[in-house]
Amino acid sequence: MTKSSDALKVAVAGVAGRMGRQLAAMVIDRGLVLAGASEVAASGVFDEDAGVLAGRRAVGVWPSPDVQEAADGADVWIDFTRPEATLAALGALRTTSVRAVVIGTTGFAPDQEIVIQAASARFAIVKAGNFSVGINLLQALTRLAASRLGSGWDIEVLESHHRLKVDAPSGTALMLGEAAAAGRGRSLGDLLAKPYLGPDAARKEGEIGMAVRRGGGIYGEHEVMFGATREVLRLSHMALDRTVFAEGAVAAAEWAAAQPAGLYDMNDVLGLGHTA
């Protein structure tokens, strides 16, 4: 396929990883330009075409351990790596052509979130714990349900992921917890329950509980349970293919490229709003 000279140019971080390959493949499948790719120095993939790594045709782009080189000529940087790598990339991108950044990395500490907020003065940043359209609709429904159901309804978030996932709870579970807390006019920091463990682990009214499971190759399963004395409401989502996350991230890249600098999330991309 011949690319238009004005087609969006996208660079993908961590292109040899599972998510990086999916992102690169989605960029190519949507007819965009895979303009660059990065990978850690120990990866040993620098003589492999990024398109081939993604299971697609060769695109004449080879991974680089240098973010500035990888982003050279790109409009958007997509990063699903690790907190330290993402923050380092944000610093390096300041001297490149990149004007928008999509961040799917999770597990940021509060002080790292401040760095991202500061970087949004320079870039249009779309940051989300999950880029699945279904998950983001679940987030909106969770916020709505929490706003309509009183404190007599207990809220519990359950998430399951593959055994290799390093952060817990998942960024998506925290997203859903924040949505539930926002529906009640509070922050998750105020309402999050400690793990239920030991003889004094009784649930407290109004708290939001969170449970984590790790095993096998589960892409991602999330459930928000609202439990009252006489009835239970469950809202859930299951990812059947990692492609759903790449599809949402690349759609976010296309949207972000047309936005002014600022910090956005998938509610903005999908027009779901931020209020209950």
Score class of each variant (00 low, 15 high):
93 L>T: 13
95 T>S: 15
95 T>H: 14
97 S>V: 10
98 V>D: 11
98 V>N: 07
98 V>E: 06
99 R>V: 01
100 A>Y: 04
100 A>D: 10
100 A>C: 10
101 V>A: 04
101 V>I: 04
102 V>W: 03
103 I>V: 12
103 I>N: 02
103 I>D: 08
104 G>C: 03
105 T>K: 03
107 G>C: 10
107 G>R: 07
107 G>E: 04
110 P>R: 14
110 P>Q: 12
110 P>F: 13
111 D>Q: 13
112 Q>M: 10
112 Q>E: 15
112 Q>C: 10
113 E>W: 06
114 I>C: 01
114 I>D: 13
114 I>R: 13
114 I>W: 10
115 V>E: 14
115 V>I: 14
116 I>Y: 07
116 I>G: 09
117 Q>S: 15
117 Q>T: 14
118 A>C: 11
119 A>H: 01
119 A>W: 04
119 A>P: 09
120 S>D: 11
120 S>T: 09
120 S>E: 09
121 A>W: 02
121 A>N: 13
121 A>S: 11
122 R>Y: 00
122 R>S: 09
123 F>W: 08
123 F>R: 03
124 A>G: 08
124 A>Q: 02
125 I>G: 13
125 I>E: 01
125 I>R: 07
126 V>A: 05
126 V>D: 03
128 A>T: 08
128 A>I: 03
129 G>M: 02
129 G>F: 03
129 G>A: 08
129 G>V: 03
130 N>D: 05
130 N>L: 00
130 N>W: 01
131 F>S: 02
131 F>Y: 03
